[in-house]
Design a protein around this nucleic acid. Sequence first.
DNA 1: TGTTGTACGTA
DNA 2: CGTACGTACAACAA
Length: 893
Amino acid sequence: MPKSEATPTRPCLLLLDGHSLAYRAFYALKDANLMTTDGQHTEAVYGFTSMLANILRDEQPSHVAVCFDRSEPTFRHEAYDGYKANRAETPEDFRGQMQLIFELLDALRIPRLSVAGFEADDLIATLATRASAEGMDVLIVTGDRDALQLVNDKVTVLMTRRGISDMTRFTPEAVKEKYGLTPAQYPDFAALRGDPSDNLPSIPGVGEKTATKWISEYGSLDELVRRADEVKGKVGEKLREHLGQVIHNRMLTELRRDAPVDAEPSALTIGPWDREEVNKLLDALQIRGELRERLFKTLGTTDPEAGEGFEIEVTVLEPGQVAGWLAALPEDRAGLAFQGTYGSGTGRIDGLAIASPGGAAYLDPTRLTEEDEAALRAWLADENRPKAVHDAKGPLLGLWAHGHDLRGLTCDTALAAYLAMPGQRSFPLDDLVLRYLHRELRAESAPGGQTSLFDDADEGAARDLALRAQAVRDLADALEAHLSQRGGTRLVTEVELPLVRVLAQMERAGIAADRQYFAALEAEFGAAVKQAVEAAHQVVGEQFNLGSPKQLQEILFGKLGLPKTKKIKTGYTTDADALAWLAQQTDNELPVILLRHRDQTKLRTTVEGLIKEISDDGRIHTTFNQIVAATGRLSSEKPNLQNIPIRTVEGRRIRKGFVVGEGYETLLTADYSQIELRIMAHLSGDESLIEAFESGHDFHQATASRVFDLPPEQVDAELRARIKAMNYGLAYGLSDFGLSGQLNIPVAEARALKEEYFEEFGGVRDYLESIVAQARRDGYTETILGRRRYLPDLTSDNRQRREMAERMALNAPIQGSAADIIKVAMLNVQKAIEGMRSRMLLQVHDELVFEVAPGELDELTEVVRTQMGRAYDLSVPLEVSVGVGTTWEDAGH
DNA sequence: TGTTGTACGTA
DNA sequence: CGTACGTACAACAA
C-alpha cells in the first residue's frame, strides 16, 4: 500500500535483510529456472531486484540500507556450538548470486552493510533503534520472524509470505493479532518454541500453541521460569526438564541493538546512481523489459532502451460485437487464452480471449448472437488464421464439446517449452513469461493483488485472460526463436503439435468398459483379499493391518523373528521380492499369504479405480499427458491406462473388461516388437546386432547364440534368459552389480558375461560409451528426431548423482527415439484412417489400440501395419505384430 | 490437510 | 547399485 502522499514526508529508513530476501526470492522463482544463456542462474538476483523495486516504489523511503550476514562465526556461534549447525548446504544454483546482488546494489548506490561477528538481524536491530531514537520511521523487510521483536509505534516489519510479492505488514497490533503476543514477548516465545532452522532445540510436546499460551499467561519467560513448578501435567515436567535449554535459547533469540555499525541512519541515503553501470549489469544478467523499466521508473529515470511497457487495450465484447471485431482482426498470428475446465475427454469453455497486434478482446462463447457464433466458428476453424495457445488439448476438447473446431494452431507454448526444457514437470504460463519475456504475468483481479484497477470483477477476469492471450502470443515468438536456433522446430511443428489433435481425438473416444464384468471382478478380488486377511490373522494370532508396512515389519521381524530383509529408511523392506525370499527361508506360511494379499488388493484397487472412471457413455476416457515425461514418452492419467496388468493370468482378467463399443466390430492392437533394442542396433550400427535382428530367429536366442558361439537351437532357456536380461539391461545402464542381482549370479560372473557379450557386440559398447561422453560434452542427449534431454548432473561431483545421470544418458536416446517413432506412426495412421469410421483409442508406449468399424478390419490392419512399419527408416526392420479380439485381452498377443 | 515413503502396475 | 511413468495407502507433520 503506498504511503499517502499528502502527508509531509517524515524521514523513513528502509532496512532490508539481504540474505533472507535473496533466499526467499531464489526459492520462489526456482521453478521458473531463470538463467542467462551462459548458464548463470539469476532467480535470486531477479527476485531480489523485483522486491526492491516494488518496495521502493510503494514505500518511498528517504533512507535505505541492505544488511547482510557475514561468513565469520557470530557471537551466537560462540555461545552455542550447534547454532545453525543443521543448516542445509547452499544450493548449487544459488551460489554466485549474492555477489551479483552486491554488484547491483553498488551500482544503484544503495548502501549495503555487514559486520563481522553479527548477523544482518542485529545490524537491523541496531539501526532501527538508533533511527527511531532520532525520530525516523523505520520499515524492516525480512523473512526472519525474529525481527518481530523490533516492532513498535515507529518500527514496522514487512515479512515475506509466499512468492516475492506477498508480504505481511506487522505493526504492534498485527503481531498481537497473529501471535497473541506483544513484540517484546516474541523472543521469549521463540526461545520456548525452539527453531529448527537455527538448530535451537524445542521441548517435546511444546509447539507454537503451548508456547504462546504460557507466555501470555505468565507475561514473560522470566516469570514462567520462576514459576515453572506451577505448570501442570506432562508438558510441565518436560518444561522443567528442559529449562536450561530454554534459557540458553533465549540468549540467542534476542537481537543485539549495539552492533558496531559505523553508519549513521541519516547517512543512509540513496546516492546518484550510475545508470550506465546498472544497464551493463542488467544486460549481463539478461534482465530486460518490465523489471528493468520498473526499476528505472522507481529510481526516477526512464530508460529509453528498456523493453516496451506491457499495456494492452482490452475490449470486452458484448453479444453482437464479436463478428465485427473478428472481421477487423489483422491476419497476424493471434494469441488465445481460454477459461474453462477439461477432463475425461471433454470440457467446457466459459471465456475466451484473443490477442492480436491491434489489441485484445474477451468474449463469453456462451453468450453470442447467431451471427457472432458463425463468425467465431469460422475464424476458429480457419486453417489460414494462425493461432497460438498454451496447452491446447484441453481447450480443443472444450471447443469440440461446444461444437466448434480449432484449426491453424501454429504454436502451443506449453509444448514448445517442453521441448526446450524437457526435464521440467510442468509449464505454467506465468513462469514461462517470466523466464522468456522477463515479464510478470500477475492476475490483477486476483484477491490480495496490490491494485484493484477494476471495480467490476468480471472485467478484471476478462483483462487477466486477455493478458494471458497476449503473453501466449509473445511467448510463442520467443520460444519459436529459441527452438529454431537449436534445431527443434521440426519436432514441434511436425510431430508434437499435430499430435495434440490425435490425442484429443483418442481422449474424446475413450474405450468401452464392461461395468458388470468389472463389478463382478472387484467382488472376486475383494473376497480373495478378505480370505488372505483372515488367514494372516489366524497365522499370527492377532489382528493387524496387512496394508501397513510398519505393522508388517513388527509382525515379521519382531513377533515372528523372521530373518531380516534389505534395509530401507523405515526399517526393513517387505516388498514382493523380500516376501518371496522370506517364503523360501522359513516354513511360516505368512509371507505367501501376504504375497497373495498384495496381489489381490492391487488388482482390486485397480478395478475399483477403473469403475470410478467409467463415464456416462459407458467408456473410460483417460487423459494423455504430452509434456511430463523427460524422455518424450506420453503418460496417461485419470485413469492411467498404460499400466493395466498383463503379466499374470489373474491380472489379465482386468483386460477383459475393456471391450469393443457398440456399433463397432472388434478391437485391434498393434505393437512394435523389441523397438528399443532395434533402436539400439540402429544407433550403435553394430553389424552383429543388426544381423541378429535379420536372422529370422528369436532375437534373444540369436544374440545368445552369437555370444556363446552355439547354434541357435542349442541355446537353452537359461542362456536365453541371461542374454535377454543383458539386452534389456544395457539400454538402462545396467551395472555388473545390477545384472548379478537380476540373474542371481556373483558379480564377477556378471562382469564376465558382459565381457563376453561385448566381445561379440563391441559396437554396442562403443556406442554406449560415446553417448555418455557426448552428453557430458554437450550437456544433453538427443533422439533420432532431435529431442533433447539435458543432464547437467553428468559433471556433478556427487558420484551417485553423476552415475544416475549417466544411466539416464544411456536410456534417453533409446527410450526417446522409440517415443519419436510411435508418435510419427500415430500421426501417419491417423491421417490414413481419416476417411474411415475406425478409430485409435490408446497408446501404451509401443502399442496402439484401435476400435474397428464393421467391415474395416482388413483395411485397418493393412494401414496400421504399413504406417507403423514405415514410421522411421532404421537399419533394422520395424516389426509390427497385430492382434484382434472383442476385448483388450483377446486382442492381445 | 498436505507431504513423504513404500509398494507396485506398465513399457 | 537399470530407465520412464501414475496411483494407492499409511504415516507423519502441522
